[in-house]
Write a protein that binds this DNA or RNA. Sequence first.
RNA 1: GCGCCCUUAGCUCAGUUGGAUAGAGCAACAGCCUUCUAAGCUGUGGGUCGGUGGUUCGAAUCCACCAGGGCGCGCCA
Length: 624
Amino acid sequence: MTIPPSKRKPHPPDPHPLAGRKKPQTPDAMTQDIYARIRAEVLAALRSIVPDLPDDIAARVEVTPNRDPAHGDMATNAAMVSAKAARQAPAKIAAGLVAWLGEAPDIAEASAAGPGFVNIRLDPSAYRSLLPVILRAGESYGDSKTGAGIKVNVEYVSANPTGPMHIGHCRGAVVGDALANLMAKAGFAVTKEYYINDAGAQVAALAWAAYWRYLQAIGTTLSEEEFSNEVPGGLQYRGEYLIPVGTELARLHGTALATHDLGIAAPDTWIDRVRDFTIDAMMKEVRVDLAQLGVRQDIFSSERALVASGAADTTIDRMAADGLIYEGVLEPPKGKTPDDWEPRPQTLFRSTQFGDDVDRPLRKSDGSNTYFANDIAYHADKIDRGYDMLIDVLGADHGGYVARMRAAVKALSGGKTKFEAVLCQIVHIMKGGVPVRMSKRAGSYVTLSDLLDEVGKDAVRFTMLTRNADAQMEFDLDKALAQTRDNPVFYVQYAHARCRSVLRAAAESLSAEAVTDAALADAKLDSLEAEAELTLMRRLAAWPRTAEAAALAREPHRIAFFLYDLASDFHMLWNRGKDDATLRFLQQDRPEETLARLALVAATAVTIRSGLAVMGVTPVEEMR
RNA sequence: GCGCCCUUAGCUCAGUUGGAUAGAGCAACAGCCUUCUAAGCUGUGGGUCGGUGGUUCGAAUCCACCAGGGCGCGCCA
């Protein structure tokens, strides 16, 4: 999850410029978000009681849904938060609010309760009036301008192109993609980006591994162990996925990349070509996997290209000119000194001046850049491209990396560009109640492609979003396919399918034109007054604030939970028709009631689609 | 040793950023349904929110310390 600002210690990031502004006052948000509307009413009332209400107190006034329907639809803390400034008892202010709000449109009843809450019960017509708004908005229902067009770059996946994507990458891909969608919905100007880590030792190792498959393809007499002994660091990436690459290299180059007796030629003569070709092949697969997962990034940035362009060195020079760099010797970590520790002068970035724990090295002893140095250059590039905020979606094992990157972004942008990280914890795959082990070294691991074949894109994406990203997760393959209530993927899809099924049936019995969203937006809705119907409408009304809060918290998983609750409300309504046929949506001899219920059903479908769109999950028309 | 994250019902997890009597699914228990709105429904029980202090009108939520788990800790990315 995104760590709530208050929890980030010891170096809280600068708060988002709009983080404190919870209730946008833009006109479309006002009409869509009923909580914002009522809050405006509460503020007006409060100002009449406390004329000199300070702005910071006003900002703390909230209107929130009530857990217990007996308390009404929503409640405000206005009396309590303003009591001190007003020098009046909360109860007294609350009484004033009650008197004022009781007269307000949309509000059926206001009452003081507890230590100073004001409970508000809305007139059902207030909820009904939301249905045409939803139906006209379509999937854009829940969009807001909270982000105010702030330019955000969300970087995710960003794996070494050293093999097919596997489960470990998958969560970051889904979380990053959904987060980007969510922030776009909240009015941020979002760019989705993939950083290809195609420089450094790992891709050199990849080149050697591909070269081994090439030698095999042309019929070398070397054994794998003989070959491995000649490889700096030994042969890695022994998975079979490089066999086709070797075959293709053999087709393109014949035996030209080997010695005449089909042994290992001097690396200078082949390694660049083999590496570039292999990276290219791996990235093609990655793109296929991403496409199958429904992820489409706007920009792919290459670390190798960045280094080749000299940008990395330019950035280091720039930092040196700004006095951010020095040659120095780091202390060994206290309590755990590496065996081969020896003091060594290094090129260090003064990250401690920007909130990091220790200064961080930018150059290796051989003079080449550390990964961090290149990554700084990459982030500098993103800063130069004009983003106001950079979000990196990372694996939890990169948690220790966040503080230094935040320091670097702060230093490079003069504090103007915000940096955030979203950490994704490990996913354990379960099948038949036992964990599916993965071992990258042995080359046998669960690839993303396998997973997609097994359960499909929608189940993968939805399931990945049923946990806070920062919590470890078990992915139960059997459960993801189960058609039961405890599988949220199914349960939500089924709710949408049921909505569509009702509307199809209505199109048959009435006419297709009569049941379009546009037509239903004009339906007379007075007959919608059953408790289960109101419960569902309340849920629909909560979508804008839910989406907005999830975006500000950087927690896309909240969307999955919202949709599950929404589906639950809908199924409950549906089930009432099982016992009592008069409660079914379609009533032969009561066209007005039927149309009203259809409007509710259609609005439910719209809202589910709006949520699924954020998650990147396809709504289904029918279950099979 | 230090830093970050986590700990909520038997299990898996939510908890609207400090609000009222802490919720859902599964499992358990008790009923109902044998359907054409197939892929169940209704209800019940279940809690020292890891522990102890503190902050205030009010704490699962913020602070301090402690316990347990995960991740990280100079030339891996």
